[in-house]
């Protein structure tokens, strides 16, 4: 395996990506310690729309709340939505992909048809429809994003299973009397986790962007709970008069997604032996 420190050190994207991700994760975990103010309760209309200054590093919003504190707390929503929905997507996608790839025949046709239908609908539109049906709220965001976006994982898993199941150790396992599910989960799955891990990492970034979009459109996390997308929505009208209200949450989204993408790319480079050898 290429997980040696020497190999990791050579992947600049992996290092920068994991530094950014760890920074955001640290923000989420230690939010109460880091934030100088309470994100919702320390609203003071006298300090409305203050530009960045010594007292409020990132300035304040229309209601006079500290933007730095709200950005810090917002990371909790973004990361939890990203991780949780991608976890759900991965579980569904891996299971469906294993079934489709291993059993083939009509099960494969059925599952592939479902993914084709899901892929033909833009994810945001689909999530919007689900949110419109269930109403806004954090739990519903989890559900809407968690069940709509597993097609890529499913297809990737299926293709990996198709190549892995022809390998001799799977044949040997069948000859030794391993059951179908034991072969799928014990023999095949551990050997195809690499690419799935990579696509899941990239999926977290996608989920964070989708959550931001939903909140921006008013269907996601409801105010006053701080979320980066929601903060952008509120700042839209003040884009020119008080740009700091939108710049900082926007930067937070940008850096988090960038970090996750770099991390995912770096992970892929690390797991792909061809690239490891070239560099």
């Amino acid at each position: 395996m290429s997980f040696s420190w020497k190999n990791i050190k050579r992947r600049t994207n992996l290092l920068i990506g994991s530094a950014l991700v760890m920074f955001v994760a640290g923000m989420a975990v230690f939010a109460p310690l880091l934030a100088p103010y309470h994100p919702t309760e320390d609203a003071n209309i006298l300090y409305s729309e203050e530009p960045p200054c010594e007292q409020f590093w990132f300035g304040t919003d229309i209601q006079g709340r500290d933007i730095l504190s709200r950005v810090i707390y917002g990371s909790r929503i973004s990361l939890s939505v990203g991780l949780f929905t991608q976890f759900m997507n991965s579980v569904i996608g891996i299971f469906m992909g294993l079934m489709a790839g291993y059993f083939g025949k009509w099960i494969d046709d059925l599952i592939m048809s479902i993914t084709n239908i899901l892929l033909s609908i833009p994810t945001l539109v689909f999530a919007l429809a689900v949110m419109a049906l269930m109403g806004p709220g954090l739990i519903n965001v989890f559900i809407a994003l968690g069940v709509t976006n597993w097609s890529y994982t499913c297809r990737l898993t299926r293709s990996q299973v198709l190549s892995a199941k022809r390998l001799n150790y799977v044949m040997a396992a069948r000859a030794l009397g391993y059951g179908k599910f034991r072969i799928m989960f014990n023999q095949i799955l551990p050997n195809i986790m690499g690419p799935i891990l990579v696509i899941s990492t990239l999926g977290v970034a996608g989920a964070i962007l989708l959550e931001a979009a939903l909140s921006f459109l008013g269907l996601g996390v409801q105010p006053p709970t701080p979320s980066w997308g929601g903060m952008l929505a509120g700042a839209r009208e003040k884009l020119f008069t008080a740009p700091w209200i939108s710049i900082y949450p926007g930067m937070a989204i940008f850096l988090t997604v960038l970090g996750l993408n770099l991390f995912g790319d770096g992970l892929r480079d690390l797991l792909d032996p061809h690239i490891t050898q070239q560099k």
């Binding site: 390998l167 001799n168 150790y169 044949m171 040997a172 396992a173 000859a175 030794l176 009397g177 050997n191």
Partner: peptide, 19 residues
């Protein structure tokens, strides 16, 4: 029956689960 009949494969690389 599975217990009584076993197989040894040609390719010693792909016939063992690497994990």
């Amino acid at each position: 029956i599975r217990k009584e009949l076993q197989i040894i494969f040609q390719d010693p690389y792909s016939s063992l689960n690497p994990r």
